[in-house]
Amino acid sequence: MASPSTTSSARSGTPATLLLIVFLAVLWIVFSGKLDPIHLGYGVLSIALVVIMSRSLIGSRSDPLLNEVLARIHWGRALVYPFWLFGQIALANLAVARLVLLPSMPIDPVLLRFKTGMKSPLAKVTLGNSITLTPGTVTLRIKDDEFLVHAIHEDLAAGLIDGSMQRKVAGVFGETEHETIECELIRDAETVRREEGW
């Protein structure tokens, strides 16, 4: 995976552009559902147009960041990850459904704040989205490397506090410095006012 993107700087735009083309082609064929030359021709034209227009966003030579990230992705783990995540989502839902349906509604919200060593934006986005979808936690803010997470109950955020979720995402993206630097729990309004400077 790593060789084509790192060998020459002139060809550094290749993997991301190629991925974009494959993605758009699959999208076109599924949405149109017709395989005659005219419709495929329209497809080729639109894909070319989109790729040309998005050159400044993705895979241009001036911004090789995305390609470096793509080159370091552990594709085997990336394929398994969605299924693991789906299992987690199912568990999260049963937990939240229980909280909603119990008449006493035993929720005890807590804010979590931790820093992560992950560098690439894609890894941070994946971690943020995964946090939102899994047990009782919603990502509120990602500023640089600091995550602010709202958890509906402390017990449901255990995987985040001990850092197993962060390790999982870091494994997919081949990030090495993934240790949770500190995980701080905020439980009352006074602390929020002091920490945020409201």
Binding site: I107, D108, P109, V110, L111, G128, N129, T132, L133, V138, T139, L140, R141, L148, H150, R187, D188, A189, E190, V192, R193, E196, W198
Partner: peptide, 29 residues
């Protein structure tokens, strides 16, 4: 939807946080 829903919620949560909406805590006010 599985990618977009969490992203939209995150955007809303960030907006609420930056407009200083205080979360509810059980033992607090």
């Amino acid at each position: 939807v599985a990618i977009g829903n969490p992203a939209a919620t995150h955007a809303l949560g960030w907006a609420a946080l930056s407009s200083r909406l205080m979360p509810w805590f059980r033992k607090g006010r």
